[in-house]
Amino acid sequence: MKNTWAVFMKQVNETFKNKTILIQFLMFPMLVIVMENAVQIDNMPEHFFVKLFSVMFVGMAPLTCMSSIISEEREKNTLKVLMMSNVRPVEYLLGVGSYVFLMCTAGTLVFAVVGEYRGKELAVFTAVMSAGIVLSELTGAMIGIFSRSQMTAASVTVPVMMVFSFLPMLSMFNESIKKAAAIIYSQQLSEMINGIGTTDISAKSVVILLVNFAAADVVFAAAYKRKGLE
């Protein structure tokens, strides 16, 4: 536990010094405040930008942060020093993962406030976002594990992140994309968030989300077994 705490606190200390990571946490929450207040179009769904950007945030920030932090530590050999200091890989991943989760949850709360979610709606929104954050974290950690440098990680992260964060938006305009995107978690998160206050979460969405979880776990475990952290 103390090792996880040490890694977590390291990340906390770096928060305002690592601009690449900080901007990921701030960009969409700030953007949603601006857009919700600045853009008013007739017949635009209520809190359109909250629903749009929250899914993009969940598909982008945790994934980019995890892959960037892990790959940087691998590249600069600070991860090796931690491992030599008795920090186990699972403790490291939990430390970084809980930090990213906490920061993204803070972002989630900004979306919740701007989206005026209350009571059950707030609980559902937070739960849906949390599930998405964890799934994106697993994907980002997987990329970090396979990347020897930040540059390699970025070249993989960008297309993966674009798939997860932009497909739900593109599926609004194209039925074929919508059908194809239905199997990925961010599309289901988008449908769940869009349905808050109007429709209940469908069993199909929950099943797809669980399948995504299972798949991410299996692939992550295989990646970790094959490559380890060092």
Partner: peptide, 9 residues
């Protein structure tokens, strides 16, 4: 020689 330090801290 290749052990890193946290340069931002």
């Amino acid at each position: 020689d290749d052990f890193g330090i946290y340069e931002r801290l």
